[in-house]
Design a binder for these strands. Structure first.
Lengths: 194, 194
DNA sequence: CGCGGGTTTGATGATGCTCAAGCCCGGTGG
DNA sequence: CCACCGGGCTTGAGCATCATCAAACCCGCG
């Protein structure tokens, strides 16, 4: 990959640490570019998650399909977000989750084997990856608490507030599955809210 | 601190990396020992979380008190677990959560300022801390999904299975608040299950 | 025009909450 | 040693929230 192609990723890294030109080309040598169409899967549950994706444009969601076939979206990811099934990625065992593109999506791909090499080559990046994990954990904990302490309506209003961009990009039934309610109930709620 | 006093922590680290004697005494110089009684608070929401705790004996819970005063426990922690309000710890801003001892509890305390020093002194520990975060995130994600896809009964059975030790140590109403249900409903469920 | 994915609507019902009361039991003081 | 107290657990009646199911609707697209 050329440096210019992975510019968004470099910018992302440079929010936390600064990089020399030689480091930038090293990074470029570890990653790939991926282009996907609406509906494409970046990962199918049951397969091993062999890579982490950094979204440069478009939109994806990661979701769990339960025993009854009902989908529960764990997260949406847009520009400048990372996405993967961490558990599967770390252990290199079968994934529990699916990752699907909700629009034409461009990603920078960091394969499992290259991640180690990348971190060995530029140990300062550990810091960036750590921050990423910390942030994700904080958000997840808040989501657990919100799920218990707020009503569906309150959760929806909060979502609408914080993720207006996302709400505009995805079908309603996925928003419902993110909020932990049915599409029917979300529809009724929205009507109530005029 | 003497090395022998922090043995449980060293063992914990040595599951992932090996440590020289000089490193061990370095670690000992960064941490403190804490002893708390049942009911004591390791952290009160509103205050800054200035330390991370490694439990060597006893039991604590971290919980959120919502607008109405209802408590929602985010996690229990026993022997060999870390606990802190990560968000507050990282940002050094006021905590949203409380951490409370559910029994006499002994902890090894890693203060905020010493954490950096520790990681600088022994960079390999980054790896251990990263794993800790990864594990916590995986569990949190699963908990979100379970909250959406399982009934209260299923969640309880799963909890009873996985955390039998914890269930034995804590009052039922806290288990309920971990499961996201009321104490009354948990009581009724348990009766149903004979 | 008709098809299909997504959304809406309504009737019905389950899950789990609220409130209020009573109970159990270990601890403490008289 | 008993009485009482208080924290936690139980029980029950009534209720809110949200799910389920089935049908209709909407609208962009081939």
């Amino acid at each position: 990959m050329s440096i210019s192609e992975i510019e968004p990723l470099l910018e992302h890294f440079e929010k936390d640490i600064s990089l020399s030109d030689s480091e930038k080309s090293q990074i470029a040598s570890f990653v790939k570019i991926g282009n996907f169409r609406k509906g494409d899967y970046l990962l199918c549950s049951g397969n091993v998650c062999k890579e982490t994706f950094f979204i440069t444009s478009g939109c994806v969601r990661i979701f769990y399909r339960d025993q009854k076939g009902v989908e529960h979206t764990i997260n949406f990811a847009i520009k400048d977000w990372w996405v993967s099934d961490i558990k599967s990625f770390i252990t290199q065992e079968a994934a529990d989750y699916d990752i699907q593109c909700l629009a034409g999506t461009e990603v920078i791909i960091l394969p499992f084997e290259q991640q180690d090499q990348l971190l060995q080559a530029i140990p300062r990046l550990e810091r960036v990856f750590k921050k990423k994990l910390e942030k994700a954990l904080i958000v997840a904990q808040k989501r657990i608490v919100d799920g218990f302490s707020l009503t569906a309506r309150e959760r929806y209003l909060q979502f609408r507030d914080k993720y207006a961009t996302v709400e505009a990009m995805v079908p309603q039934y996925m928003v419902a599955s993110y909020l932990g309610i049915t599409k029917e109930f979300l529809s009724k709620m929205k009507k109530e809210l005029e």
